[in-house]
């Protein structure tokens, strides 16, 4: 019955591999502030690193926005990676382990999805890509029916 409210923590550009380090650094600070344990922090930073690299390598650069979430007794962090690149023609395939178009191990998208609690992707060929991930501290809020 609790609405999720959010507060924007930062919006960072992703234009070079130095920016990737900034993103990891920022996510580390934000995750510590939210109160994530060490393992959850590591997972979230790693997921952010994968997604930021996707934004840089496949999307030709873009940005990441981080938002602190407050959902009653659950606290979380939401990261949204946006680029204006070529988009992903086949999302299902891109999420499959081993699929790669950038010379990596092909674990970026699918792997990042396994490291977070919520994962959504919005893309269409020619219109860029936006990937949103959410991690909650402790128990993720159960989706509950609103009373009205």
């Amino acid at each position: 019955m609790t609405e999720t409210s959010g507060r924007v923590a930062a919006c960072l550009p992703i234009r070079s591999d130095t920016d990737l380090a900034w993103v990891r650094q920022h996510v580390r600070q934000a995750a510590a502030e939210v109160g994530f344990g060490l393992v959850e922090q590591t997972k979230l930073i790693t997921a952010a690193s994968e997604l930021a690299r996707n934004t840089l390598v496949h999307g030709g650069g873009g940005q990441v926005e981080s938002v602190f979430l407050d959902h009653g007794r659950a606290r979380g962090l939401r990261l949204t990676f946006t680029d204006e690149g070529p988009g992903i023609p086949d999302v299902e395939r891109a999420l499959t382990d081993g699929y790669t178009s950038g010379g990596g191990l092909g674990l970026g998208l699918g792997g990042a999805r396994r490291l977070v609690h919520e994962f959504s992707i919005d893309t269409s060929p020619g219109h860029g890509t936006s990937v949103t991930v959410v991690c909650w501290v402790g128990v993720p809020p159960r989706p509950r029916e609103e009373a009205r």
Partner: peptide, 13 residues
């Protein structure tokens, strides 16, 4: 480190 090992396994690596 343990946290890194857990993350790599979840990542599929």
């Amino acid at each position: 480190r343990p946290a890194v090992a857990i993350t790599l396994v979840e990542l599929g690596l």
